[in-house]
């Protein structure tokens, strides 16, 4: 099997190379890039993200990658957002009022409430609400690693394909046509995370 080319969008913030390295381990020719041409040629596109919502959106726009995201999503090629990369796909976040998100998926990103420590910085069980090709070959309740203080609330709850329980049920995975996004870090979720990335890579070939 040839290794599908996957563009991991590099807008110069934090640790983005972990996602690229885990995708390579999962069978992709994954490259960190800010080259729109390479993103156009890629079989799939990944938008990672760590840190604050506003800082990530600013950096994405400064790197001229916003249109690359819209083109990739519109092209119907597989597209994956990870952590803040997932949150950025939403309309806005209470973390950074006044900063527009990408609004690929309608909804907001809210502070995690309840009698729990913030950030949620731990492994947690995924509760699969709707079957998705992303979960192929995974245990019924996979364990994955979360690091976040904010959580996405989609307008259309049908896009939520998996949740985790932390104070209340939080959105863990969303799916909207060719766009899939995880609040947790599959690249840091050991065996189950690599399987999930492998499933994404397989959908890119």
């Amino acid at each position: 099997m040839t290794r599908p080319l996957i563009a991991v969008l590099d807008y110069g913030i934090g640790n983005l190379s972990s996602a690229q390295k885990a995708l390579v381990r999962s069978g992709a020719d994954a490259r960190l890039t800010r080259d729109p041409g390479l993103a156009r040629d890629a079989a799939g596109v990944v938008l990672p993200g760590v840190g604050a919502f506003g800082a990530c959106m600013d950096a994405l726009r400064a790197a001229h990658l916003e249109d690359v995201v819209y083109e990739s999503v519109a092209s119907q090629r597989p597209f994956m957002g990870i952590c803040v990369g997932m949150q950025m796909l939403f309309t806005s976040s209470v973390e950074s009022p006044g900063v527009a998100g990408l609004d690929v998926i309608h909804g907001t990103v809210e502070l995690i409430e309840g009698n729990v420590r913030r950030p949620q910085m731990q492994w947690n069980e995924l509760h699969v609400e709707n079957e998705d090709p992303l979960f192929a070959g995974l245990p019924k309740t996979p364990w994955v690693y979360f690091v976040h203080s904010y959580s996405a609330v989609p307008k259309d709850s049908l896009v939520v394909v998996a949740t985790c329980e932390y104070g209340k049920n939080l959105t863990a995975v969303v799916r909207q046509e060719n766009v899939v996004a995880t609040q947790f870090h599959p690249e840091k979720s050991a065996k189950d995370g690599l399987q999930l990335l492998h499933n994404f890579v397989s959908s890119c070939s």
Binding site: N15, V50, G51, A52, H148, S149
Partner: peptide
């Protein structure tokens, strides 16, 4: 602490 958190987020 403030400097690292501002650039990379508190989770780092």
């Amino acid at each position: 602490i403030n400097e690292i958190a501002a650039e990379f987020g508190v989770q780092c």
